[in-house]
Amino acid sequence: MHVFETLRGRTRLRLRATPGDLAFEGLSTFIALAVVGLLVLITVILYLAAAESIRTYGLGFLSGSVWDSVSQRFGAAPFIYGMLVTSALALLLGVPVSLGIAIFLSELSPAWLRIPLTFIVELLAAVPSVVYGLWGIFILGPAMRVYIEPGVQAVLGFLPLFQGHPIGSDVFTAGVILAIMIIPTISAVSREALLAVPDSQREAALSLGATRWETTRLGVLRYARAGIFGAAILGLGRAVGETMAVTMTIGNRAAFFGSLFEPGQTIASQIASRWLDAVPPLELGALIQLGLVLMLVSLFINLFARLMVGRFLRVGEGAE
């Protein structure tokens, strides 16, 4: 036991605190509590600013399907739907790839490749979201329209989800961009989860004659599944709040969509694309109310993720 811990602990021994000590501890405690207060302040301010909208639309705001500043009717349902669909798509595409990356980096990669590859994958997180958006408009969007979406349609076109004429600036493209953007988060956190698996797990499987893949699947993945699940939820948290890249690629149509090849809107993209043109006070208030919904959703997701990842979760380099 360190003396330092003991001094602060249950024993009666105490360092004599100088006035400077008291002042400094007081200051840092005050600042830390102020930072916590900031989160409370954000919630309160959002609530205050949306108060009129909340009074006018109440809970019906969540189920309303029209966004019309002329008739002053505002509903969030198409955006919640858009957020759920794009995030689900992002997870569907992003989690397997991220998991593959994490497995390669922690289990299979030759040692000399490990550090540079980890670094390069994390660079994906250093690219600003507006640059992803630009790339989405001019490179990914056209590629989706000409190659990928017709290709997907050829295979899965019998599903209503993949019908219609591919336009490239649609929900599917936004989902793909989101998948790319959450890869560094999910792969970094699941890699940490895999690295935390004790080697005895691997040795046990190998000694039973398992191949490398069987070792990974039986000995490592199963052991780390809570951490991997938490990593995916953390990626979900990123996906629901991502704004610019989605705003620039999703096509910005404030309505429900039946096919992934139609334009849509998420909560975040609706706020960003309407913000500067919003008609105060009611439309602006409604946008702020949308922001409040987004904040509560992401708060819930992130608390859940934290619970799942437990000690694996860190503000890691590039895991942002």
Binding site: L33, I42, I45, L46, G241, A268, R306
Partner: peptide, 23 residues
């Protein structure tokens, strides 16, 4: 405090934008 700070690092930046404006 650590829990709140962690949650804050994950708050969508657009929400923070709305906050600053509304504040």
């Amino acid at each position: 405090v650590r829990l709140f700070v962690d949650v804050m690092t994950q708050t969508p930046s657009i929400v923070v934008g709305i906050f600053a404006y509304s504040f």
